[in-house]
Design a binder for these strands. Structure first.
Lengths: 250, 250
DNA sequence: ACAAAAGTGTTTTGGGTACACCCATGT
DNA sequence: ACATGGGTGTACCCAAAACACTTTTGT
């Protein structure tokens, strides 16, 4: 049984020179993770285990955002997930940077020149039913991504850079957090993404100025310390109160 | 004699489903301008004059940035110009939003589904040798762009939005200014782009904090008022002194 | 009682903003 | 002399940053 990626190539007409690759970020155990998938690559008579980003070709009848959402569904079982295109990768040699990658991919292509649109995606890992995670997919620490096939390390690095940039200007943290979260969870997430630490009092003073961060009448339970208040994010209030100038820098 | 755009389709092998469209911004006469080009579109027995953004297909052997630079060269004669990809437009119907556009473009395509990468580009209009401006190209006030073919109004609006966003975080103004400029020119440029006004003293205090803005030992001449000091931008100093936190908001 | 994280206030410093007048040049 | 844009300083407010102790729960 071959991968989901290849099934689609046979079942639907796709654009042969355009693909989408997706960096799926998740937040779990106070750590930022990214999803990579394994491929078995025969080369020189040996089987290599290689890793790559999930990706797929664009179907003739869909937008690239639909392609990205389709990849998310395939990889995680989730729908209505935040996906964002961030950069196009168009190096004419991008699939032949290492010969073994090219040997593997060549029979799967109708054209050897493929331009790919990089997307990143933010999910709350606790929403993922792990039985839906396709075999050969794995959550990797975002700071310890191994060598990937093709130009996927470059795509990953650009995704992470863009994520940080965007996070300072849009309320994207909430896409990574569960629906109800504590301020400490939120702070640790910022710290994981920006690889730094913040002062608790200053952090709380700042986020308490966000009118769309709603304190709930509900506290943590089952923790062996003072239980923290839970908060949720109100997108409508954000949309109504957003200003050009607000920024999310901590 | 047909346009340069079509010549390329015949002379070089291009990727049939991928194009680049370019919003070329220029600053002249204290106004922000964008370059549009005219096409004569026969439809229903009449000749329509239509306008579109300059664009081209991607050649098999070039990156999309090279495609964008090639478009810049064709349209303005300039090389080594700042170009930046900002978004991919992939609506499957983007070429058939109006029937007359599709009738015009169909014979020029090998595939009716074309995904386009939007670039914006910043040039200093005084660098342009107007005899190099190709016929049928025209500088239009950035706030008075007419109806364009295909989805080019959407591309234009996204380019302008992205330009404003990027301008707050990177020293892009200097790409639009001449090599030597006055602080008032710089202020008027910000005002043109953000469609607002700034206090002169506060503006100057802020930009004087930029170590890469170099006051020259040279002043304006030939003006019927107190001549202003000229400044230039030092990219090396910017690269050396840039910080994550600096922003260009006025 | 102890461990573990929650929660809270003050001071200092620097940037944002609002605001009005004199200066140098060409005509 | 007048018109035109060039150029400058001060006061107020608010946000950023640095910093330490008490509270609440589970074990």
């Amino acid at each position: 049984m071959e991968t989901v990626e290849e099934k689609n190539i046979n079942d639907f007409e796709t654009l042969e020179t355009i693909s989408v690759d997706c960096v799926i970020f998740g937040y779990d155990d106070n750590k930022l993770k990214a999803l990579v998938r394994r491929e078995t690559v025969p080369y020189n008579g040996e089987i290599h285990l290689e890793w790559k980003l999930p990706g797929n070709h664009v179907r003739r009848d869909e937008t690239i955002d639909a392609t990205a959402s389709r990849i998310l569904k395939e990889q995680t079982g989730l729908e209505n997930i935040y996906v964002k295109q961030f950069m196009v990768f168009s190096n004419p040699n991008r699939l032949r940077l290492r010969e073994q990658d090219f040997v593997w991919v060549k029979p799967r292509l109708r054209d050897e020149r493929v331009i790919t649109v990089g997307f990143y995606s933010l999910i709350n890992v606790s929403d993922v039913d792990n039985s839906m995670l396709i075999e050969d997919a794995k959550w990797e620490n975002a700071y310890e991504i191994k060598e990937l096939m093709f130009d996927h390390n470059e795509i990953y690095d650009e995704a992470f850079k863009k994520l940080r940039y965007d996070l300072l200007h849009e309320p994207l943290v909430f896409e990574l957090l569960p629906e109800k979260f504590t301020l400490t969870q939120m702070q640790k997430l910022y710290e994981a993404i920006f690889n730094t630490t913040y002062d608790k009092r200053n952090f709380r003073r700042k986020v308490n100025k966000m009118p769309y961060l709603i304190p709930l009448d509900e506290i943590q339970s089952g923790v062996s310390h003072k239980p923290a208040r839970l908060y949720s994010y109100d997108r409508d209030i954000y949309e109504k109160t957003r200003t050009e100038r607000f920024d999310f820098r901590m």
